[in-house]
Amino acid sequence: MKPLLYQIPRNLDEPVRVLKESHQHFYDNLHFHSEYQIMTIIEGKGTYFIGDAFGNFNSGDTFIIGANLPHFFRSNKEYYGPENGLRSQNISILYSPEALGDKFKDLSELHSINRFLEKSKSGLFLTGKAREKLYKSSKKITDKNGFDRLIYLFKIFNFLAQTEDVVTLSHVSYEDEIKVGDTEKINTVIGFLIDNFTRDITLADAADVANLSVNAFCRYFKRHTRKTFSQFLNEIRIGNACRQLVEEDLSVKEAAFKSGYYNISYFNRQFKTITGCTPSAYCKNINFKHVN
């Protein structure tokens, strides 16, 4: 995969950086960076793509994103309109182990933390008590500086290395090769799909956006997202249907129609394939469901 390399502004000898961000919508270009990231959503709703995992996020959610793992967070459509008071806020804790040197990383006391960081290269989502704890801890670390901030982060990592309230998101590993032209093109295609998934989008439509033939586009899209065009589009649509079933209390038929499906039988099959349950069963459990 060849997403945008995102350079986090920091001092070279600064192992921990904490960013408090508040914008109308989240940064939504597919990108990666060398730092490990703990991202807590303080305010906002939307969809994420981490590795090869696609799903919904809400206020209070926390994600652990390993080094060089491609990802984006895209706010819901209403966040992109005229200024309406909606905000997308997050706290990101960014950790660069290289700043501490190899000898520090190799300490036996850090083995469990290093194993956790390796696991985070597939992307992790926190549930249960871990979700609640990290929401509070992410706020607390913003008040700490220097050595205190580093110690506090390692306490967080130590807790995360022991908790079972963690869901692994991505199934595949990635290389960090990039080409700017490829980056711009795949982000344009993804943006087109997310903005237009409620209407009938053909393979030819998406190929035109990428300025490729249909055959070339199929190869290109699979290489960059590890999914076929139809898989990716169905995951966007089912993710939207999940959100509408829970947040807007729509009927199954209404959610299907507003997510781009006009055949209920096909919608039900895709819903079960992607979420592992039927729409009615999903509605009975309003806990987080990541689409994977």
Rank of each mutant, 00 (worst) to 15 (best):
G55W: 00
R149L: 11
I50F: 00
T163S: 15
A255H: 03
Q37S: 11
I201R: 01
Q37C: 12
F73K: 08
K136R: 14
F192N: 00
I65K: 02
A281G: 05
V18A: 04
H111D: 15
G276I: 08
A281V: 12
A256K: 01
P70Q: 08
N240C: 11
S120V: 11
P3I: 02
F116C: 02
A130S: 15
F125D: 01
D165G: 09
T47A: 11
K227N: 10
K284H: 13
F116E: 00
R10I: 08
P97D: 02
G55D: 04
S108R: 14
N268Y: 13
F32L: 12
D200W: 12
S88V: 01
L203P: 03
G191M: 06
T275D: 02
E247G: 06
G239Y: 06
H171E: 14
E184P: 03
Y79C: 05
Y261W: 11
L86D: 05
R87D: 09
G66S: 07
D28E: 13
L134E: 10
I286K: 15
Y95D: 04
G239C: 04
M1G: 02
N215H: 11
L107E: 14
V291I: 14
K2I: 05
I274G: 00
S259M: 07
F271R: 07
D200Q: 15
G123Y: 01
A216Q: 09
D176R: 13
V209C: 05
L134T: 09
L94G: 01
E83W: 09
L193I: 09
I238S: 03
N211W: 04
F229G: 02
R149V: 10
S170M: 02
F54K: 06
S88D: 08
S230E: 15
I186V: 14
Y152I: 01
S230L: 15
A216K: 08
L212C: 04
L30Q: 00
F57V: 08
T198R: 13
G101I: 12
V252W: 02
F217A: 01
Y79G: 05
Q244E: 13
P279W: 01
Y48G: 05
D13I: 13
F116Y: 14
I93Y: 09
S173N: 10
H33Q: 07
N285I: 05
L126E: 02
F72L: 15
L124W: 03
I41W: 00
